[in-house]
Amino acid sequence: MTVQPATGGMAGGPSPSGLADVIDTILDKGLVIDAYVRVSLIGIEILTIDARIVIAGVDTYLRFAEAVNRLDLSETKEPGLPEMVQSTKQGKVGGKSKDVVQGVLEAAGEKLHGFTDRTDERQETRRRRGKEH
């Protein structure tokens, strides 16, 4: 019995785990030590890297609309949400776990700064648009 080679990056069997895969598995799943141990438990600080994207909400909807708008319209350069577009592209190369690792590592490194920067940029964009009225 063999596994058929496939274009989806599955050729020859299972793929190696990327960091995002590991995060999905060991930060969320498994036995919770608190359920068994109280007295000798040490609450050590854990750096959490959340690679997940909120999948329903206005930001997502605008991103989808933007992506639909871009279909077959490669010359259209809409302003706004450039980081989002970038992160979608990173997601798209997910077949190669190396790229995913890279993407997540970058995301983790820039987490705090990146997050506040993005918020500011979005607000700026909105303000700028407001002025045009």
Binding site: I26, L27, D28, K29, G30, I33, S40, L41, I46
Partner: peptide, 11 residues
């Protein structure tokens, strides 16, 4: 039986 990441005991 895997434990969730981050389980530390005193000894």
């Amino acid at each position: 039986l895997p434990l969730r990441f981050g389980a530390v005991l005193t000894s």
